[in-house]
Nucleic acid binder design. Sequence first.
DNA 1: TTGCTCGGCCTTGCGCTCTA
DNA 2: TAGAGCGCAAGGCCGAGCAA
Length: 226
Amino acid sequence: MHFRGEQLRPDALLGETALFSHSQIWQAIDRLAEANGMSASGLARAAGLDATAFNKSKRATPHGRLRWPTTESIAKCLAATRTSLNDFTGLVHGGPGLQRAVPCIHLAAAGTSDLFDDAGRPAGDGWNRIDLLSVDDPCAYALQISGDAMMPVYRDGDTVIVSPAAPVRPGDGVVVKSGNDEILVRRLHRETGRKLELACFNPQLPMLTIERSDIKWMARIVWTSQ
DNA sequence: TTGCTCGGCCTTGCGCTCTA
DNA sequence: TAGAGCGCAAGGCCGAGCAA
């Protein structure tokens, strides 16, 4: 697992190598509080944290970005309730994921009309819907791969789940809308203050270097159905 | 009155980028 | 290569509203 200080790295917890999802972590905290006869705010206080630390309003930003508890906060909660890490892990996996329909579009059609807003979220008509389990990002959508240009990673007919709210790091698969409205599916190789290097999934194809100013939005691929 | 929740703003710490 | 500066993200603080 990777860490940013004491903070749980969301990208280490989501996607193809998922350990815990955002909703699972917060549900586990709610269950831990309930099991000890407390509310989430009561648990926070018992752990020596601010009573609002676990408020639902603080589990995501107003812009939809997911917020995660730190390992330090979780450790304090476990200490305050005399709960073992194993028991907490049981709470994390103790509930079924919620199923919901998400917008779905073919990659070949994704760049042909105004299917996205300025932040890369689905917009307008022309989307199908498919059912998925445990998608935390309310703006997540499915992209159906067409063609063999992304072999050997993605084949024709594969479906990738894209989360505009998920943080993007080098090495992640990403969907990028360029300045000329082209939809690109690449792997983020490197990013600097001004430029991004986007690698093709086919190693025989060249790296694409693109100015940030030439990118309308970029979203992370968090899950793949193959 | 007390406890809980919400929303906004501030503080703090860490990682990344840039530059000398 | 090291230090400065910046941006990001979580937790804390505070005021307001609501319910028991």
